[in-house]
Design a protein around this nucleic acid. Structure first.
Length: 267
DNA sequence: AATGTAGTCAACCGCAGGCAT
DNA sequence: CATGCCTGCGGTTGACTACAT
């Protein structure tokens, strides 16, 4: 954003400035991060000459100044991911955001609140979520069974975690590759189905924190042409229109499933 | 044209967990 | 082990914008 926002008034509390950032402050912060890297936010004020709290600096950087942030609107593919992940993890926005490169937790949180929180979808979301989780549980049980079998075979089960991503909580490790996987139909609400990659399903269920999960998912998504895994957010916008038209349902109708009875391949 | 309302987004607040001392 | 500091997260607020009446 160029120039200071006009909204809000600048305040100063306990020596800390509050309210909207000015372009001058942005420059100072960006220069500081370039020189010193991220972190140590509490020292930023001293080092960069900003009268901002460490918290405020961090927030400004993470939500606005980071160079890798996307500026475009959230695509239907991203929406789909958000909703699936929200079904899995609930309001863990930062966790969800990590699966969407260039998006921030704040952005996703705002998006969710704007689009899904209030109004019609809530009931459907809850019901679909319940169903989704139930399906997940079944998958996990199946997984465990097959794990038992494979132990005897000495083989490695598909969709299990073979690698470890360093990036995240304690939750998991990542699967590697998920090419050429068949699809699984996940029943949502009122007969509408999400067709998912089998491996993606398994990965999602077993290793929810893996970034590769979404590579997998996107592979299936872009995969209308049979692609195998463009990375998250890379070219999603291109598929936007066509996939929307093809399945006749993007987001609104995804959750507006009552009486829909349609099958839509989301990814 | 004026007013009201909903949507959007940046920013703040409080809390919790991790880590160093 | 206890304490304090730092960082990150989720919830919430408030101002602007767009659209409807």
């Amino acid at each position: 954003m160029e120039g200071p926002l006009v909204w809000g008034r600048q305040e100063e509390v306990d020596g800390w400035r509050k309210g909207p950032w000015t372009s001058q402050e942005d420059k100072l912060l960006v220069n500081h991060v370039r020189q010193h890297g991220e972190g140590r936010w509490n020292s930023v004020s001293k080092l960069a000459g900003l009268k901002r709290s460490g918290k405020s600096c961090r927030l400004r950087w993470v939500n606005y100044l980071r160079p890798d942030l996307k500026r475009e609107k959230i695509t239907p593919q991203e929406e789909s991911i958000i909703v699936q992940l929200h079904a899995l993890w609930g309001n863990r926005w930062s966790t969800i955001a990590r699966r969407l490169p260039g998006r921030t937790d704040n952005e996703i949180k705002n998006y969710w609140r704007t689009h899904f929180k209030k109004g019609k979808p809530s009931k459907n979301i809850e019901r679909a979520r319940a169903r989704f989780l139930k399906q997940r549980q079944e998958m996990m049980q199946q997984q465990q069974q097959s794990l038992g079998q494979l132990d005897e075979d000495g083989d490695q089960p598909r969709g299990t975690c073979t690698g470890t991503t360093a990036d995240d909580d304690d939750r998991g490790s990542a699967t590697g590759d998920a090419c050429a996987a068949p699809t699984t139909t996940v029943a949502t609400e009122a007969g509408a189905d999400l067709i998912m990659h089998d491996d993606a399903m398994v990965d999602c269920f077993m290793c929810p924190m893996s970034c590769d999960d979404l590579l997998v998912l996107h592979g299936a998504a872009g995969g209308q042409g049979g692609g195998t895994g463009s990375c998250c957010g890379s070219t999603a916008s291109d598929e936007y229109g066509s996939s929307e038209e093809d399945c006749g349902a993007t987001w609104g109708s995804l959750w507006n499933l009552d009486g829909a009875g349609e099958v839509c391949t989301l990814w």
